[in-house]
């Protein structure tokens, strides 16, 4: 059985690598994007099972990524949003645009792992 493919978009390199390392250990295949533009480019070439995206990224932010995927490309891949603390409005906006789940920074890697499993199972 092929491992689930997860696209991880985050501009903080340390956090990107840490999450990638944590999820790779659990047997997922991780694709990395350092900004929203790169995230959309990767998604043009291949399909993934889950997208984990930060909201604030250079070039194209998380909201625009979600909006492009849901409205323009009609892509229904589950999306988990990572948001900075105190940004309730941004999280609500992400949900309105079509995000499936969110986590507020600082977050626990164990909790992230549980949410990823849940989202992949509900797909």
């Amino acid at each position: 059985m092929q491992p689930h493919k997860i696209l991880l978009a985050e501009d903080n390199k340390l956090i990107l690598e840490t999450i990638a390392r944590s999820l790779t250990r659990e047997g997922y295949e991780i694709l990395k994007a350092y900004d929203g533009k790169e995230c959309l480019q990767i998604l043009e070439g291949q399909k993934v099972d889950l997208i984990i995206t930060d909201l604030f990224m250079p070039f194209i932010n998380g909201h625009e990524v979600i909006s492009t995927l849901r409205n323009e490309r009609k892509d229904q891949t589950p999306i988990l949003v990572l948001s900075a603390g105190g940004g309730e409005e941004n999280v609500l906006k992400a949900f309105e645009l079509g995000a499936d789940d969110f986590m507020v920074k600082p977050f626990s890697l164990m909790e992230l792992s549980v949410r990823v499993r849940k989202l992949l199972a509900s797909k």
């Binding site: 903080n12 340390l14 956090i15 840490t18 920074k105 626990s108």
Partner: peptide
Amino acid sequence: SVLSNFQENLRGDF
């Protein structure tokens, strides 16, 4: 700065 980056973004496990 590296340790702060960890601490500001991740909690619980580390």
